[in-house]
Each structure stands twice: as C-alpha cells, then as structure tokens.
Simulated assay, not measured.
Amino acid sequence: MKEVILLTGPPLNGRDEYITEALKLAEGGSHVYYHVFDYIREVGKELGVKITRKNVLDFAISHQDLMNEIRDEAFNRIRNEIDESDKKYHLVSTPSLFRWGSGSVLGFTTSNLKLLRPNRVVVVLDDVLSVRRRIINDPEWFERFGKDPENIKLTTLVMWREDAINHVKTLVHELKKEGLEVRYVLQFGIRHPHEVFLNLIFRENEKPLIYLSYPMTGHEEEYYHRVRDFYDKLNEHFTVLDPGALDDWWVVAEYDNQVAKDPSIRRIKIKHLLDGEEVEELDREDIEQATDILRRQLVERDFNLVDVSKAIAVYHYAEEVSAGVISEMAEAYRTLAAIYLYYPFERRPSPFMEFYGMQNPSRRTMFKDKDEMIRAMVEEKDYWAKA
C-alpha cells in the first residue's frame, strides 16, 4: 500500500538539507522524494515565467492568481507521478506558509492536500538562533534583511513557525471534515539523528514511536551524557522523539541569567548551542517579545510529541520533581500511552509521579534500573504499540 508523507514547516528551517542528508542513508530504494519547488519552476518555465529561489516570494505576492495556478499544477503532476509509481513511500516537501512584507505565500491549500491525500504530516523545525544564523549565511536572504543582522528579529522567526504550524493544523482539520484522515501531524526537530528520521518514515511498525521525557534544565554536564546514553539505548529498539532536538530554551535561560545579574542590561550575549563558541548579541526587548511565544510553543511542541507516541520513557535522574515531566506524564495518561518511569532514588517521588509512572502494561512499577526498564518496554512492545 502506498503512503504519502507531507514534509513541511516554516522557511529556512533546514528541511530539505536535513531530509536530503538523511535519505542518503536510506536502504532499499522504496521511496520517492518530491521537492514541490522543482515542479513549480518546471511549470513556470512552460508558461514563460522564470521562477527562482530569489524571486519566488515577490512573484507569488504580486502575481497571486498565476502563482496559485502554477502551484496547483505542480501538485497535479506530483499526484500523477505517485499514482504511476511502484514505490511504497512518497515524500512531498514544501514550505507551509510564509508571510513577507504585506503579503503571504501558501505552500499548499486545502484543495492541494485533498488531491495529495497525505497519510502523515511532519513539520520539520529548527531552533530560532540556527534559523537566524542560516539567514545571515545565505546571501539572497541576508540581502532581503538589508544585510544587517539587527533586522533579523527572533520575534519574526518564532512567528514564522507559529504561522506554519497553524496553517497545517487548520488544513488538516478541514481534511478531517471531508472524511480524509491524517494519522498525525508531528513537530520534528532537525537535531534528531538522521537514523531517527529514517525510522520515523520507514520503520514505524518495527520501531514504534516513543517520547523521551526528562528534566531538561539546571543540571551538570554529566547528567546530559547520561540522558544521551539512555537515548541511544532506547533508539536500538524504538523511534525515540527527543524534546531536546529543538532547543530554544537555552536562549530563554541565558536571557534570565544575564538579566538577573544586571537588570539594566540592553544587549544579551548568547553562545551558539551547537559550537559553543560563536557569540551573538541580541536586543533584550526582542528576546522578551519572542520568549512569551517560545514558552508556549515549547509546551505545545512537547505535548504534540507525547500525543503521537505510543509510550513515553521517563528518565528522571533527579530527586526534585520536574513540573514539565509531570505534565508530560499526565498528557500521556490522557492519551492512553504506556508510561515507563526510571527513578533510581530511595526517597519516594510525589504521589502523582508515582501514579502516572506505574501506567505500564503489566508490571505496574517504577524502575530503579534503567536497563531493566528498557527490557520491559521491549518485552511489552507488542501490547502497547498496537493500542
């Protein structure tokens, strides 16, 4: 049976670069990858219109009807190729929605999705400082911002994300009203290893989706090494969704630290998360405005990952109860996902954590040994993965 997977998201989040690199590792040749912009260029050329990466936004805003016609024909051609294909997986990549200046550009409409009939939608996301850096390093986009980093506001970038996700949610809701069921919409951070993406796309039956929940802030470096080791062990058996694969929280945390030290500070210095060296100075007011949106997006994103997962594995290597972890466990309980809790301390946790942490199929226990917990998850996988 053919499966169509829509890969989308806000612009400049590294979607196509990440997917292209991941697919180089794919085995078996059971997939086809459709980049919608390639089809738009092809259709435009046939109509005597030269559409390039540089002019596409201006063209789409100033020639909306013609752009809609070109985009619709691009989706028609992709649908025809899918129908004629003998492959199982059909990956279709295009931005969701993009606001620029006084206008907006839709990556797809309800009618496009009714034609495409996606089984799953994956919204591919990157953290806002990486998006900002990507703009600075892209001559065409940097020119759009006047070649001035000060013009690239974090508030703008978080609103790009907000618009893109909301557009997807709205259109998927419309599809459901038409009787076309999308299995899930998943917000996927590109800091996940490529192998996790391949498991998500191609091996979901063998490696069901699980969510890794853990206290994320205020710990020593050794703690995060422990979390990473646990994540790698889980990944041998499951497709593990990690909230740390989209990490904007460190921007908020650094802002809080510097303001606490100097309440009058106007410029916030932030080391980039990935290289730990390059320092960016950001306007305090911009971070404050972006933070309000980021905090809400963080909660919504984590709940989204819990909601699509069949189980959550809680790695609570901390005696103090994390409000975020408890909330994720409560959400998993609400969605009837299996919950496995690793809590290796003699001191009992809160009764709420204990209650949620014992909602696994057979053992009804918290685990003091993380390897024992993984063995239990594997042994009981057939039970909860089919729930």
Rank of each mutant, 00 (worst) to 15 (best):
M1L: 07
K2T: 00
V4W: 02
I5K: 01
I5G: 04
I5Y: 04
G9H: 05
L12S: 15
L12I: 13
N13H: 13
D16K: 12
E17Q: 13
E17Y: 02
Y18A: 07
T20H: 00
A22R: 02
H31V: 01
V32W: 00
Y34T: 00
I40C: 02
G44H: 01
G48T: 10
I51G: 10
T52Q: 10
T52G: 01
R53S: 02
K54E: 04
Q64T: 13
D65A: 12
N68C: 11
N76L: 05
N76P: 08
R77L: 05
R77S: 10
I78P: 00
D86K: 02
K87F: 01
Y89G: 00
V92S: 03
T94C: 11
P95Q: 07
F98N: 06
F108T: 00
S111W: 08
L116V: 04
L125E: 13
D126P: 08
D126S: 15
D127Q: 03
L129C: 06
S130W: 05
S130Q: 14
R133W: 08
R133M: 14
I136Y: 05
D138S: 14
E143R: 14
F145I: 05
P149A: 04
N151T: 04
T155F: 10
M159A: 08
W160P: 03
W160E: 06
E162L: 15
D163N: 14
N166V: 06
H167T: 01
V168H: 01
T170E: 02
T170C: 09
G179P: 07
G179K: 03
E181N: 09
F188C: 09
P193Y: 07
P193G: 07
I201A: 02
F202R: 02
E204H: 08
N205P: 03
N205K: 07
N205I: 12
E206C: 00
P208K: 12
P215W: 09
M216P: 10
M216R: 13
H219L: 12
E221C: 05
R226M: 10
R228C: 09
D229K: 15
D232Y: 15
K233G: 07
K233I: 02
G244C: 12
G244E: 13
G244A: 12
D247G: 08
V252K: 09
A253T: 11
D256H: 07
Q258T: 03
K261W: 02
K269Y: 15
K271A: 13
K271G: 13
H272A: 13
H272P: 02
L273Y: 14
G276M: 01
E278S: 09
E285W: 15
D286G: 08
E288R: 12
Q297L: 06
D302N: 15
N304P: 00
V306T: 12
V308I: 12
S309G: 11
A311H: 15
H316G: 13
A318K: 15
E319G: 15
E320I: 11
S322K: 07
G324I: 04
I326N: 08
S327A: 14
E328A: 01
E328W: 06
M329S: 07
A330I: 12
E331G: 13
Y333G: 10
R334F: 06
L336F: 13
A338L: 08
E346R: 08
E346L: 03
S350H: 12
E354S: 12
M358F: 03
Q359L: 09
R363N: 14
T365S: 04
T365D: 00
F367M: 01
M373K: 07
M373E: 12
I374A: 04
E379R: 09
Y383S: 04
W384C: 02
W384S: 02
A385T: 05
A387Y: 06
